[in-house]
Design a protein around this nucleic acid. Structure first.
Length: 198
DNA sequence: TAAATGATGTCCT
DNA sequence: GGACATCATTTAA
């Protein structure tokens, strides 16, 4: 079942980030279906989070979409090289987002290997926000894409991650955010080989 | 095996 | 000019 729009418009971005574990992310780019189960996420909140690009109503052409109503994609270029895929949540005017950091490949693995220029499947095929976007064919053309449409979407297959397998730790790569770097807003499935390794 | 490094668009000071 | 929600490759130990 495709996740409905009202899944994304709820106010608690941290809770949504947790619930996204075990959901499935699919893309249909260039006529190729690729996707798999989400195994790692991070929450970013416009309010009270210095790690968020839109902290304190910082509004630029790049972050504009974060103020949109939940249920659209925020694709952003880091280090001039990698496209990171985020899901916008909450209502219009609230700049909350969930970064999808890793998935477990399910369909379209041949196409993912081609895009990654890899000969065989290894655990780093989709482990990490930069390489995952490459494997799924996500780029800045998908900035603002509606996640209830037919290009990028999420599905609920009824999988529930047991409490004991859901790990909660501080986010990575945001040391510049001061005390906010310590917020336990990174979530992943314990023991899953497709989680990006530290 | 660990640490340094290069690539480089967008935003900030 | 410097920093950044990264990753692959090279260099050092």
């Amino acid at each position: 079942m495709k996740l409905p729009k009202d899944f994304y418009t709820r106010p608690d971005v941290v809770q949504i980030a947790q619930e996204l574990l075990g959901k499935y992310l699919y893309t249909a780019v260039d006529g190729m279906l690729t996707g798999g189960m989400i195994v790692e996420t991070e929450a970013y909140s416009g309010e009270n989070d210095r790690a968020c690009h839109a902290h304190m109503n910082r509004r630029t052409a790049r972050t504009e979409i974060m103020y949109h109503e939940g249920g659209v994609a925020y694709v952003y270029l880091v280090y001039g090289i990698y496209n990171l895929f985020n899901i916008i949540t909450n209502v219009e005017g609230k700049a909350d987002a969930v970064l999808i950091r890793a998935i477990e490949p399910e369909v379209g693995t041949e196409e993912m290997l081609l895009r990654r220029n890899m000969p065989t499947i290894k655990s780093n095929l989709t482990a990490g926000p930069g390489v995952m976007s490459i494997a799924l064919g996500i780029n800045r053309k998908h900035y603002g894409e509606n996640l209830t449409g037919n290009t990028i979407w999420l599905e609920d297959k009824g999988i529930r991650i047991p409490e004991a397998e859901m790990m909660t730790v501080p986010r990575v790569g945001i040391d510049y955010a001061g005390d906010d770097a310590l917020l336990p807003w990174r979530f992943y499935i314990k023991g899953n080989k497709w989680v990006s390794k530290k």
